[in-house]
Design a protein around this nucleic acid. Structure first.
Lengths: 214, 214, 214, 214
DNA sequence: GATGAATGAGACTTCATTCAT
DNA sequence: CATGAATGAAGTCTCATTCAT
């Protein structure tokens, strides 16, 4: 095989690969739209391929099944989330928890459709990459440095990361349902709770009148 | 129709009603077992009727579809949760948040199988009664009295209830996955976080080294 | 459960079972017709259920897949073949090879459609019961008594059974294609060959002129 | 168009033809391997092209479909079989049946993989060239000279050819399954049966005890 | 009320075949 | 000529639901 034929075959391969990549991207984009609209379970392969305007069979050229495309989608977003949060935090002068939390909320807001599906449909996908896991992992890593310098004495870093994840996740879900404040307000509310805890009164005063039935 | 036949038919009706109720209860119990074992989505009506040892058709005499039996199941547990928490809290001398939270964790622990399904499969059921909603509602009610007496000034009671729900829910999920500490330890961890917030250091110190790439 | 309810449930079960059996029989009969007409490979489950005038799903209530119904069909006929041949041979005064061979041909003729499929489609079905195997087995058993009494000295009973099976099978196939003579004439031709072998001339004289090309 | 460019194009054409032939041969060889391994039905065009290390589309430049390549394959082998048997027989001093049969077995042994598929998958291919037909045809031709010289009086040459084919085919199949003796031993067994028929005892003695059930 | 055989819509998946490159 | 991505027809199979008994 001489150079020209090699170039030729490379060029051919390249053209094919480009088309392939484009189709794959169309499938991913379509899946995202359809999942957001109908939810994971009510979406069929046909729904996706029709939305992507490709043949049914084409789907199977790129993904094994619905789980795989879903996981790919989540994976993609989570990877971007991770990268962006890390880069944002690193480049910030004060890489404190507020910076992290705000960054997460901002990203979640930008990708609201996908986060919405991911946070509510996760459990029905076998071997799913759970968003919560990724957030918790990231927080755990952040907390570890604090643990090492003794600032988290008396706390279980893992559990703490998990609980904070709970607040964040619930914040995101509530927020999508309400379509309420912007990401920064949400972040502030969450951060305020995390910083100061609930008002002391809740721990001292009766919240319900006593049972005086008899 | 004479008296005796009337008595007879009454008796028959009564027997019929009892039998009907028993069958229904068997279906619910079976559904619970099967959902816990295979998850909501992977459970078929046949699975349930086989576990209940009744005919397939019998299912439809008692429930419209899988969603309905699932919701009935959740409903049942949530109603009991609500009643128990209220009664426990009312009869406690100090009806403070810790009492409520502990009560919730204890109940979730007692019904772990159902809570586990309810917290992770909720989204795939159309028009589901979400566990989170019930907890959040209860908390909201509790917070309202505090709001009225001005102790929650500056806080949005709804959002707060939601965020606290997030911590509790995540606590329960994590806890089921880890099969970790008992309900009271979990409640303490959550309460500690809610009472004091995270250590101040997390808000002041760098959690990740700055980007020194160049 | 008292007697009357037991009778009741038995009767109900019986009615259900009868319907079930009837449907199954209809499926088998339909499969037989369709296989005979289109061959094994070109027959779809839909073809069978349409011919049987039942829903597609019904098929799967009775058979796992196409292989299973095919094997059931063959099995059925082979079992009848075996029973009939044995009974015919046993009740004959002279239970010699000719009696066996005639009996086989007669039965094959009576069930020509199925034998035709069975002899030509066998290999495409995984783990098929091959007609040839059953015939060969029967012959082997018959030959064994002869072996024991020393009448087959110098012969391998298994191989012999197989070769005789070959003649019979080929006879049946040829015969179906030609739609030629009746079963007894075929049997006679085959038996004549088996009794006397080919004319000695074939073993002595040139059958093709020598190569005189150069 | 000048001479040099004509030469050029001729050379190119020639190169093209050679390449084309090579690809075709690779496809045939690959098909043979794959058919032998997975059987006709379970082999897909993709299987073949992958084994041949060519693109899927290339297949269609050389063959219409799976049937065609299969038939080409069988054709090829049968033609060689015919040529070799004829040449072997012609060059033999005694061109008798034993020479023919031995020659067939030897060739079948040499091409065992293909014969195995051809003898068992034949029926699933539409308009197939059946191995049996070719063998039977050859034998018929051989028998005809005997018929003409009156040595087969009382026999139907066609039927006889067919039955002998049956013995041979069954011999080959059995033999492949058993992976048993060499080609010459098989040929001897078959020839012995064909020469002398089965032992007379089988036609006189009971092969099964009479039915003494009552 | 209880049963379970039957139904058929609808989902999944494969694979022969085409065609732009 | 060779390629392989795309296509969609055709088949398989499951399962919620009905209905005669």
């Amino acid at each position: 095989m001489n150079d020209s034929s090699k170039d030729d075959s490379n060029a051919r391969q390249h053209r094919g690969a480009k088309r392939r990549a484009r189709t794959r991207a169309e499938l991913l984009a379509a899946a995202r739209r359809v999942f957001a609209k109908k939810g994971f379970h009510d979406t069929s392969i046909l729904d996706i391929t029709e939305a992507a305007d490709v043949g049914v069979g084409t789907f199977y050229l790129h993904f094994r099944d619905k789980d795989e495309i879903f996981n790919t989608l989540i994976d993609e977003v989570l990877q971007i989330l991770e990268e962006q949060v890390i880069s944002e935090v690193r480049s910030s002068e004060t890489a404190t928890l507020p910076v992290i939390v705000r960054s997460i909320f901002r990203h979640a807001y930008a990708e609201r459709d996908l986060f919405s599906i991911a946070l509510t449909s996760g459990a029905q996908v076998s071997r799913t990459i759970r968003v919560e896991d990724t957030i918790a992992q990231g927080l755990t890593r952040a907390f570890e440095s604090a643990t090492e310098s003794g600032q988290l004495q008396g706390y279980d870093a893992f559990l703490l990361a998990r609980l904070v994840t709970g607040v964040i996740a619930q914040g995101i879900i509530w927020w999508f349902e309400q379509d309420d404040p912007g990401p920064d307000e949400m972040a502030e509310s969450v951060l305020h709770l995390l910083a100061h805890g609930l008002p002391a009164a809740l721990f001292k005063e009766r919240l319900l009148p006593p049972d005086t039935a008899h």
